[in-house]
Every structure is written in C-alpha cells, then in structure tokens.
Amino acid sequence: MTPPRDRCEARTRKGDRCRNPAGPDGLCAVHRRQQAAGGAGAVHTPPGAPGTEPFGPFLDWAEEALEFLGRRLLGEYEVDEFGHDPDLVEHVLAPLLRPLYKRWWRVETRGLEHVPASGPALVVGNHAGTLPFDALMVALALLDEHPAHRSLRMLAADLAFDLPVVAPLARKLGNTLACAEDATRLLESGELVGVWPEGYKGLGKPYRERYQLQRFGRGGFVEVALRTGSPIVPVAVIGSEEIYPMVANLRRLARLLGFPYFPVTPTFPALGPLGAIPLPSKWLIEFCPPIETAHLGPEAVLDPMVLFDLTDQVRDTIQQTVHKNLLVRRGVFG
C-alpha cells in the first residue's frame, strides 16, 4: 500500500474536492497554474459586459471548453496511478454518455443511499447487452446522481487493455484490469470498485436467456472484499438486455477476430453500422442494501464455505431484484 498522498486543496468548478495529488504547496499542477494566473481561472469573463447577458451560460461553457483544450495542449492535468483522468471524464467522456443515460435509455436510479458517501465498497452487478454499456451507466449514475459524486473504478476484461483506442479510454475512465492485486489496491485506497462477475458469459448470452444471471466466476470478488473488509453493494440493472438482442453468435468469426463472441442481432450486421445503434429500451438501476464483510475478518478468506455463501447471497440478491423490477416495468420501451 502506498501511504495516502495528500490531495489538492482547491475545489473544481462544480464545487467538488479536486482529486489530483497535491504537490508540496498543497495544490495540484492544474490548480497551481490557475492560482498563479490569478483567481479562478486563466481566462476570466468580466460579468455584465454589454449585450452578453442572454449568452452568459454559453460564454461560461466556451470559457471552460477553451481552458480544457489549453490544459490538454500543454499536458497540464493529472491522472492517478491507474491512469484515471477525472479532467477528461468531466469534460468529454461523461458529457458524451449523458444523452444516452438521460434521453435514449431514460435511466431511473434507485437505492443510491446504499452506496457509502466515502470509503471503500465493492459494487457488484449483472452484466448484459453485448457491449458493456450497463457498466458505464452504473458509473454515470454514481458520478451524477450520488450526493458524493463518486467515481466508480471498474474492473474490466484483459481484452479491453489490448485493443487500440479502447485501452487508453478504459484506463482514463477509471477502469483497471480485473485481477485481485488491482482490486485490493483500489479498495485499500478507499475507492468505490465495480465488478461484473458474469464477465463475457453475461455480456454475450443469447436474448432468450435474458435476465438469467450466469455463473459468478470463482467468486474472486468476495475474497477481495473480505481481505479489505469492504461492504458489497449488489446492483441490479434492467434494460441492458434489450439494447442489442443477440439472436445468434458467430463463434468461428469471433475466434478468427480474437473476440469472445460475435453477435448477430436483428439489425447487426444486416444494417451495417446502422445496426450498431442500440435499441432505446427503458432502464432501471437499483442499488441494494450493502452486505457487510468487515465483521467476518480477513481470515474468513480461508473458509471456502464463507466464500460460496457470500457469492450466492450477492447473486441471489441481484437476481431477485431483477425479477422484482421486471414485474413493475410497464414495457421494454415504456
């Protein structure tokens, strides 16, 4: 474990605590430059310039965008040791995902109070939909709607870190490799970690098996939670199964391309790139009450029964919540 490094004292424009590591003067590189340039930012719009009032919000936006571009051009931003880039997430990646969240899938989120406002926790969810949009939507729900605006640090498959373009984006979004070392390290530094134990089995399952949770791997996530004493927060996502209803899997082509599966949906690959547009199903994300692990102590890792029981408990909680919410949903696109 690294000794906890001091965080920057400044606040971001949104009023959140800056998450960048601080230098000797208590500020990160970004805010040091901003302070040296005088006050809130390098560029400052004088309030009430003639004729600009109706466009105030637009000018604010332009100013922030220009400052962001300037920071990127000069390399003046900081990422953590996993490569998480909050500046890029806040200004580019989250704004790109938000329309999907709000307009396309009209995501409704429940039970956010079950996610702790600070300190470590392991968020465990069901996985479906061919592409891991469900993980991104859960992360966006926590970033935008949780009162503490928490960053979900997701554990992703090896493949994500070997694909060009995807690999750096995955890291910048806050993902890291799904291995015990990385997960432990994140939890020990008090982060909120997201894990999808079904993996490809869940993502690439045919449409007729929708909302049936697959096997939960070997339950490695429970081991990590026990070892670090972190609570487990099960999360059930509905809606993700219908975005790309997979009717067939071209196994041979998938093997040729090195992918875990090659989906055939009613529109893909028949309609080409158009077929890659996900269907606008109605989504509901529910966070369930946390399952505490601290009282079991780290020695419980040695007892396979405890591991099996906890794994099953988490899986059942998610499966039941999925069923419960499917019953209240008015329709797939409702």
């Binding site: 310039a49 003639p50 004729g51 109706p54 332009a62």
Partner: peptide
C-alpha cells in the same frame, strides 16, 4: 467569441 456574442445581442 465575446465580441461576436455582443454584436448578436445588440
């Protein structure tokens, strides 16, 4: 941008 916006605003 500010000048352009000011001009449009007037």
């Amino acid at each position: 941008l500010r000048r352009a916006v000011g001009w449009v605003g007037r």
